[in-house]
C-alpha cells in the first residue's frame, strides 16, 4: 500500500514529458559537442530530466537505422546522462518518429521530463485543474501576427 502511495505521489509530481526530433540535413552536420554540453547543463540545473535518447539515420532510400546513445561513439559529457536513461521509446516509436526525417539526414531524438513544470502542474492538479490543451506556437505564426498588426497600423485601422 505504501509503495502505491509513493508511486502516486511521484506521478503527481511528474512534470510534462515531451520529445524532440532534431534533424541535421545532409551537408549541414557540424557536431562540436556544444549540443551535448547544453543538454547536460539543462539536466544539471534541474530544468529537465533526460528519459530517453537515440540517434536516427535515414538513408537516401528511406531506410532507417537507429543507434542507442551508448553505441553512438564518443559521448563526451553525455556519458553521465546515458546511465540513467529509461528506454521509454519502443521500436514502433522509432519508426513513427523517423517519418518526419528527410532522406539523407541524421536526427537526435530526446524524450525528457520538464522538471521545471512539475511543481506548477502538481499545484494545478491539486486545485482541481486538468490540462485540456497544450502546444507550441511556431515562430512563423508570431511573425505573421506582428506583420499583420503592422499592416493594420500603417493603414490607420
Amino acid at each position: 500500500m505504501a509503495e502505491v502511495e509513493i508511486a502516486e505521489h511521484a506521478l503527481d509530481d511528474l512534470g510534462p514529458v515531451d520529445y524532440l526530433v532534431i534533424e541535421f540535413p545532409a551537408g549541414h552536420q557540424t557536431f562540436t559537442g556544444e549540443i551535448a554540453e547544453e543538454l547536460v547543463r539543462l539536466v544539471d540545473a534541474g530544468t529537465i530530466r533526460l528519459i530517453d535518447a537515440i540517434v536516427l539515420t535515414k538513408d537516401e532510400n528511406g531506410d532507417i537505422d537507429a543507434v542507442e546513445l551508448s553505441d553512438a561513439g564518443d559521448l563526451g559529457p553525455l556519458v553521465q546522462l546515458e546511465a540513467d536513461l529509461a528506454e521509454l521509446l519502443a521500436a514502433d516509436d522509432v519508426i513513427n518518429l523517423a517519418n518526419a526525417m528527410d532522406p539523407g539526414s541524421v536526427a537526435g531524438v530526446i524524450v525528457y521530463e520538464n522538471v521545471w513544470a512539475g511543481p506548477f502542474a502538481a499545484a494545478a492538479r491539486r486545485a482541481g485543474g486538468q490540462l485540456i490543451a497544450n502546444g507550441r506556437i511556431p515562430i512563423q505564426a508570431i511573425i505573421a501576427s506582428i506583420e499583420a498588426d503592422d499592416a493594420l497600423d500603417e493603414n490607420g485601422a
Binding site: Y19, V21, I54, I64, D65, A66, V67, E68, D71, E87, L88, L89, A90, A91, D92, D93, V94, I95, N96, L97, N99, A100
Partner: peptide, 18 residues
C-alpha cells in the same frame, strides 16, 4: 536497427507517424 531488446515488441508512446 540495433535497438536494445527492451524496445522490441513493447507498446509505443508516440502513437502515430510524426
Amino acid at each position: 536497427m540495433p535497438l536494445r531488446p527492451a524496445r522490441i515488441g513493447r507498446v509505443g508512446v508516440v502513437g502515430a507517424p510524426v
